[in-house]
């Protein structure tokens, strides 16, 4: 039977992030937490194939207890089993340490109940690194297809999957052996409306919580701050650029504003480029 796993992350809705104008600090209060949008689409794809192949979907999320709401949301969207991987000792993990913990969890699930496909979003919108998916694939020694935009076929007998991946240059149609890891673009699947039974189930769903105390063991040298080769050395606000010169077309007229613009362009040596005469 088809078994897919989806790694999901809860993220602050970065489109809503504000900076305190006085302190320059990030304002976290009131910023809604959402399921990372790419993960939501990846989950939708996993659920779509679960229905086609009559299988199961397990979701895994690593983070604090507040991530339970996101796991419930995944159940609502059609996941069967949710696991929260949570321990204070995991805190401060960079992408290397995160990929270690996730890989150990996925390995344990795979040993219990073999996986065919593992889904990640192409990146999380709060960090934008796109590093954890490839890291997990390397640790599990599984083939990876990044930037997946469509799954054409899953053949469980031949143990292969055919995926379209979109790069900057073209779209590649790639066949790769199962089990495989995919990192997904939003195009991979539309997020469906939750069927009522899933919705009801999600309300009361209590995910399993995996910690340092079990059910699996983690190498303490590989987790959290200790297992993270990178550290944040400094934080600062971006340097303020030199403000340019403004002219009001309303007050001084459009002609004057344009004359000013072309004069400035000439001074900057880009006038020829501007009038489409660049060599």
């Amino acid at each position: 039977m088809f078994h897919a796993l989806v790694a999901i992350k809860q993220v602050p809705d970065t489109t809503n992030i504000r900076i305190d104008p006085v302190t320059g600090n990030l304002v976290r209060e009131g910023v809604p937490a959402i399921m990372n949008p790419y993960d939501a689409h990846a989950l939708a794809a996993a659920v779509e194939w679960k229905r086609k192949l009559n299988g199961r979907v397990t979701v895994v999320s690593m983070g604090p207890n507040s991530f339970i709401t996101t796991i419930r949301e995944a159940i609502e969207l059609g996941a069967d089993r949710g696991i929260l991987v949570s321990d204070r000792k995991f805190a401060g993990a960079d992408t290397l340490a995160t990929s270690y913990v996730l890989a150990e969890v996925i390995r344990a699930i795979h040993e219990q109940d073999p996986l065919d496909l593992i889904f990640f979003g192409k990146q999380a919108i709060d960090g934008d690194t796109a590093q954890v998916g490839p890291g997990v694939a390397v640790r599990l020694d599984m083939p990876i297809v990044t930037y997946a935009v469509a799954i054409r076929a899953v053949d469980l007998d031949d143990a292969t999957v055919v995926v379209e991946r979109k790069t900057e240059r073209w779209t590649e149609v790639v066949e790769t052996p199962l089990p495989a890891l995919l990192t997904c673009e939003k195009d991979i699947a539309e997020i469906p409306f939750a069927p009522l039974p899933d919705l009801i189930r999600s309300l009361r769903y209590e995910p399993e919580v995996w910690t340092m105390d079990g059910p699996i063991t983690f190498d303490t040298e590989m987790i959290g701050v200790r297992g993270s080769p990178t550290i944040v050395y400094q934080m600062g606000t971006p340097p303020l650029p030199e403000p340019g010169e403004k002219i009001s077309a309303r007050e001084e007229g459009i002609e004057a504003a344009l004359a000013f613009t072309f004069k400035k362009a000439q001074e900057a040596g880009v006038l020829q480029t501007m009038i489409g005469g660049a060599q």
């Binding site: 303020l240 650029p241 403000p243 340019g244 010169e245 403004k246 002219i247 009001s248 077309a249 309303r250 459009i254 504003a257 000013f260 613009t261 400035k264 362009a265 900057a268």
Partner: peptide
């Protein structure tokens, strides 16, 4: 306008 060399205020 903070990063612009020329800022035109207008429609």
């Amino acid at each position: 306008f903070e990063v612009a060399d020329v800022g035109i205020i207008g429609d």
